[in-house]
Nucleic acid binder design. Structure first.
Lengths: 192, 192, 192, 192
DNA sequence: GATGAATGAGTTTTCATTCAT
DNA sequence: GATGAATGAAAACTCATTCAT
């Protein structure tokens, strides 16, 4: 694939993320996306088979970015790694707010073409967290009869919800404060 | 208002909730709603001024039910009340899964007509939880420098995420198991 | 189906036949059809699932007319009936020239959605002729080892080609002359 | 003109003939033609000024071949020459089925750019047959008051229809059988 | 000679809404 | 109260054509 084409696709992603996260998939027209990306409408169809495929590709591209960030944050002993992963999730959502809203809005929708893609995303992200919880169980810092799947989902949702509320309601607060509150809650889980 | 009309409105609600929660607001047509409700398309417009009004009415109706349930669950000393509220949230999502998905999918969307309605809902639900956290601070079971707003949001998101994952991925597990795991996590927060 | 709707469908057929037979299916837009029929574009889609379905329905409607005419012409002893059927085919093509052109233009096309519909048409029309040829074999006016299928196809194609050339090149000649020439040719087949 | 270029043009012809005969001119895209020919889309425009020119060139190329074949078949006394021409028409359609379908499908269409090209083809082919019929009149084997124009058109259409039905419905039958049946019919015309 | 990314005018299609019955 | 045929504005989508490489 030529790099010119690659660049065009990238511009379309950036345009689509913002518009769709603000207005929703249905309310965003291909015209708007093309105009914002600075290309002709036909170019969207040259690069993607249609609006739905653009959306699916967009989410896959988003996943890759989130996964890469979270995985890179798994460093050091479990407790520190968990803290680092949660901070990274917060940071990612802060930086790529549009993408995060977009993922969340669709994450709860069943019977969509892209349902499987979204589920994959969630599984990947939650997997990183669940992996760390397992390490903590082995290290004796969590009881070994804890339901790791549910707990991972709980932590993921907690950070996500807090992050989006932070961006929506109190965008000026420093990330550090939010992170500190989250860590206090999570530390409560851990065996003392 | 005649009860026949009331019955028609109710059937339209039920049809709209399911369809919109599955496909989204934009992807659900008035035709589909009318067909599922077993009425003619014109009937939708006889009963509501339009698709948007149907949607707003739908969400307000949903809010009322969620609020009623949560408020009714605030009974007894704070710890028990918190446990009861979380269980009720789980139950509500289990029973009104479509409605819950619907609310979540829209909750992260900015710049929508019904954005304020959704925010109200969230504020109401989180408010019940934050209120209990304040009671717990007063009771000395939570440190008084904890950020109650963030913590309330965290608890709410945790339950919501876990509940929807439960319904989506393991719908056959008994509610009791999910509730127990949540309570173990939450108990970790509390001062022992 | 309401008679209003039926009337609208009929007007769309009439509009589509003329336009498509002149310009071809691909070169005729739904806009043109709607405008000529005096309805809004959306009405086409309310009455048919799309342009292709309109076309298929159109051809089925055309078949019915042609079949009805040909069948009604089968009267009297075989020789006279054959003469009558060929005259009727000539007349039908003269009167419904657009429809005939349309059917012929598509009759040779494979791999189209409406291929089966067209084949049905041809089979029906040729069937009436082949039936008469069989009667003629039984009456001893045709040798019994003649390939009835091929002969029926030959007669059908002969009349069709002659009829369309007549309408195209010498539209002012009376039908009677054309019919007389055809009958002279056909009589040559028959045993004297 | 380089032979590489000539080869490319030829591949484009072959691809276009097949696709257009199957789907029609309007329904066949330049993309499809290029893909089937195994070249890039731009190559079509390097070799032809556009889709319409490709189509015109295509039909002229087809005519030349048909004319060459039919003319070469006019050998010997009229009766034998007629038999030979009809066989050649059958053979040509059998061998170049796609091209024949294509010509037929357009032959009945008025108001097209290439209408004159198609008419020329028909006139040429029918002319060869009419010429032979005139020879037969002179030889006293046909009555001199027969309408030669109509009869030529009738014979042409008869063979064409039979040939295409043969290829479509019973492609495995030997050409000889079809030819024999046609000759029996035609012989009936002739004075005995 | 050939390529294929990009274009935009022209099309098909959708669907919330109206309104006569 | 309810219906469903009809509407038209706003989308989605197609594809012949151009042009820089």
């Amino acid at each position: 694939m030529s790099s010119r084409r690659e660049a065009t696709r990238h511009r379309l992603f950036e345009a689509a993320i913002t518009l769709i996260s603000e207005q929703g998939f249905g309310a965003t027209s291909v015209d708007q996306i093309a105009e914002r990306a600075g290309v002709a409408k036909g170019t969207v169809y040259y690069n993607f088979s249609g609006k739905a495929e653009l959306y699916t590709a967009l989410m896959e591209w988003g996943v890759q970015r989130l996964s890469d960030h979270l995985s890179a944050a798994v460093v050091g002993p479990p407790r520190e790694a968990l803290s680092s992963v949660l901070r990274t999730e917060l940071e990612f959502i802060g930086t790529h707010e549009s993408l995060a809203r977009l993922l969340m809005a669709e994450a709860w929708r069943t019977r969509q073409t892209w349902y499987d893609t979204v589920r994959q995303i969630r599984a990947g992200a939650i997997g990183v967290i669940s992996g760390l919880l397992e390490d903590l169980v082995e290290a004796g810092e969590l009881p070994d009869d804890l339901d790791i799947g549910v707990a991972g989902s709980a932590l993921f949702g907690m950070v996500l919800t807090v992050a989006l509320d932070w961006r929506t309601l109190q965008p000026d607060r420093p990330l550090e404060e939010i992170h500190a509150t989250l860590i206090r809650l999570v530390d409560g889980f851990l065996t003392r």
